[in-house]
């Protein structure tokens, strides 16, 4: 009911600004941590998060309530984060570096990474995963998101998500044993 009222106010010109402020306060942290695990650096996350909310501001009139606000916001944030990474990858390929090197560099040099040595190893192992597996692993392992919810956000079947998670866990385990 609260969310319904928020959506209605977001779609009306005179209440849009205040309702948007409420929306940001409500979802900023959840979306931040979701994006942060994808793009790693705080500064990049900040850019992606701002772009996500600006997209929401511009497109709220087109939002169809059947998909759920939470799902819609996570989908926009995921797309923004992946688009951001794709642009970074393109640039790093041109500069001759290997794919995902940029993310590992970001992790090592990030002032806002406060993990132990084993957590750093885990993050490095996650960064070596293919993009989709990395996304699924983060959403399941860290955010403890249900497969059904994940399926709505990523528009992938539950079966495929389970398989991705299984492969990801296996690869990370092997990676950690090697080091």
């Amino acid at each position: 009911m609260q969310i319904e009222s928020l959506i209605n106010r977001l779609k009306q010109e005179d209440t849009k600004r205040l309702a948007f402020h409420e929306l940001v306060k409500l979802y900023q942290e959840k979306l931040y941590w979701h994006v942060r695990k994808i793009v790693i650096s705080h500064d990049d996350t900040d850019d992606v998060l701002q772009n996500t909310f600006i997209k929401v501001w511009k497109n709220i009139e087109t939002f169809r309530e059947e998909s759920g606000l939470y799902t819609w916001l996570f989908r926009i944030a995921t797309n923004e984060a992946l688009t951001f990474l794709a642009q970074k990858k393109r640039r790093s390929i041109f500069s001759g570096s290997i794919e995902n090197d940029y993310l590992i560099e970001s992790l090592v040099s990030d002032d806002f990474f406060d993990g132990s040595e084993i957590q750093l190893k885990l993050q490095k192992a996650i960064l070596k995963l293919p993009e989709k597996q990395r996304l699924v692993f983060n959403m399941k392992y860290f955010d403890e998101m249900k497969y059904e919810k994940m399926s709505e956000i990523l528009k992938t079947s539950v079966g495929a998500l389970k398989a991705s998670y299984h492969h990801a866990v296996k690869k990370i385990e092997e990676q950690l044993k090697q080091e």
Binding site: R36, K37, D110, F113, D114, I118, Q123, Y141, F142, V169
Partner: peptide
Amino acid sequence: RIKQLPGNDNPFT
């Protein structure tokens, strides 16, 4: 396998 992995505490700030 998951039990073998480090905890899922958030290492980012």
